[in-house]
């Protein structure tokens, strides 16, 4: 044991750091529930901005929903948008500053319900922005109501007996939908429930920012995530449930790269 402690002293030294919190996250503790995927996505986006060295050229837009206060945690210039309007806000910024990096960060209610029009038209115009779309199938902030992406049969506080698709319609696969628009240049669906997936998300996020230099269209990244509070599960249970139920419906992977559809088996 003594030998082990000695070794720890040798290991835990500045020069041996292989991972630490990016300085592009503020010191403020995330307001999210324990185990919530928002924190991971926030961190990944900030790591990418840090690594690309584009903090001074980046403007982020936070939505209405749990991540309304994303600007408290992301150490960059940010605007808070009205519910669903983030892609329009991003358009206004990007059109005036075509060489800046602009991204929106939106939940499923914000992006695929109240903001469907703004989402689709920003994608259709091919705005040279990045959209990060966090899909956890529920309205987290208002207390777990049905989202446009709530699965058939899935319980929420407004579908207490499960989503009846005859009454509530089917969940929207908006990511597949926007991929059909010529304005989207990069469309992908990722998750953050395992380390491998987090690495993949980071690669995609990097591409979404690098694409902005090319000015060839919009990059759209869906992140299938959990809402363990809304789903009323432990964080680990929620990730398992997500893997077994969400991912078959919302399969992970690239849909469109460099403006071309990816062939899927």
């Amino acid at each position: 044991m003594e030998k082990e402690n000695l070794r720890l002293d040798e290991i835990i030294r500045e020069e041996n750091i292989v991972f630490k919190k990016t300085p592009l996250l503020t010191d403020k503790v995330f307001s999210y529930c324990p185990g919530c995927g928002h924190g991971v996505v926030h961190r990944v986006i900030m790591e990418v901005i840090d690594e690309l060295g584009i903090q001074s050229e980046t403007i982020g837009i936070s939505p209405v929903g749990c991540s309304v206060f994303a600007y408290d945690f992301m150490n960059i210039d940010m605007q808070q948008a009205a519910h669903g309007r983030a892609p329009a806000v991003a358009t206004g910024i990007k059109r005036c500053w075509p060489d800046k990096y602009v991204f929106t960060y939106q939940g499923d209610g914000d992006l695929a319900a109240i903001g469907t029009s703004e989402t689709i038209h920003a994608c259709n115009r091919g705005e040279h922005i990045a959209i990060f779309f966090i899909n956890n199938g529920i309205y987290g902030m208002t207390g777990g109501q049905m989202a446009p992406t709530t699965l058939p049969g899935m319980k929420s506080s407004t579908t207490p007996y499960g989503r009846d698709t005859r009454l509530m319609g089917n969940p929207i696969k908006i990511t597949e939908l926007v991929a059909t628009l010529p304005g989207t240049y990069f469309v992908t669906r990722q998750s953050v429930h395992t380390a491998v997936n987090v690495r993949k998300l980071k690669k995609a996020a990097k591409m979404a920012f690098e694409n902005q230099k090319l000015k060839k269209g919009l990059s759209f990244i869906e992140v299938v995530s959990n809402c363990n509070s809304g789903w009323k599960m432990s964080p680990i249970q929620a990730n398992r449930w997500m893997e077994e139920n969400m991912l078959p419906f919302y399969p992970i992977g690239d849909i469109k790269i460099n403006g071309n559809f990816v062939k899927r088996n």
Binding site: R85, A88, V89, G92, R95
Partner: peptide, 8 residues
Amino acid sequence: NMVYGAAG
């Protein structure tokens, strides 16, 4: 909201 973004 485009006005909002640009004005900001």
